[in-house]
Design a protein around this nucleic acid. Sequence first.
DNA 1: CGGCATCCAAAGCGATACTG
DNA 2: CAGTATCGCTTTGGATGCCG
Lengths: 126, 126
Amino acid sequence: MYQRKLPKEYYCTVDYALDIFGGKWKPRLLCILGHKKSMRYGEIKDQMENISDAALADSLKELQQQDIIERKQYNEMPIRVEYSLTNKGKTLLPVLNTISNWAIKNSTPDMYKGMHFNDVHKDLFK
Amino acid sequence: MYQRKLPKEYYCTVDYALDIFGGKWKPRLLCILGHKKSMRYGEIKDQMENISDAALADSLKELQQQDIIERKQYNEMPIRVEYSLTNKGKTLLPVLNTISNWAIKNSTPDMYKGMHFNDVHKDLFK
DNA sequence: CGGCATCCAAAGCGATACTG
DNA sequence: CAGTATCGCTTTGGATGCCG
């Protein structure tokens, strides 16, 4: 299994923050989770469109370890797993919103794939 | 020369923003530049402490291409080059400040190397 | 259904040497 | 002084297959 190692020391506060919610998958993952109370693994994977199981599982695990998201397993048949933001994770939403608003001001809809720009991120976390 | 390719399409506004100011070096670089009117190449390199010329030159070039920083060359002897934030680049400072404030609330000074946490980023861009 | 393990390819980056 | 060129290592991540 691939697992990213978090460095233990940083030079900059922004580096620390982006180590938690930056990278290839986590920003989008958090934006998607930020719109729902909770989501199942497969539901997240569908909305991420092009992510592999390995990358999704690793991202989810890292975010759990940082206390940003919570995992709840229901041992039904078939098994059901729900992910949701923790209280700490919710404090990221205004931060993501600030970043998103800057991006919207400095980009155009045609730079985006799928429905994410207009239907989701324009009103992110209001 | 190594040069990162910017993808042309994004799934998420946050991805777009982090493509501009995220990554290993650019957050710290922008934080450092954000405190001065302009800085010389060598001055930036000293404050970045552990960056290689290749990585620094590439980061500076990318940020120029995105109109975040500006390069001015003075053909003195020896040559002098000054970098500074553009107007667009300055609009990033409140965004970086928001991220930094979240990080400060969720980390401790001992997680940081050097003087950056206490002496610089605590009062970032005030 | 919700993952994890393995293999492999590509990207990112550092060290070194060199240049106008 | 302010970079650029090249090499090779390390990290990242996609594809595939398997499992409880």
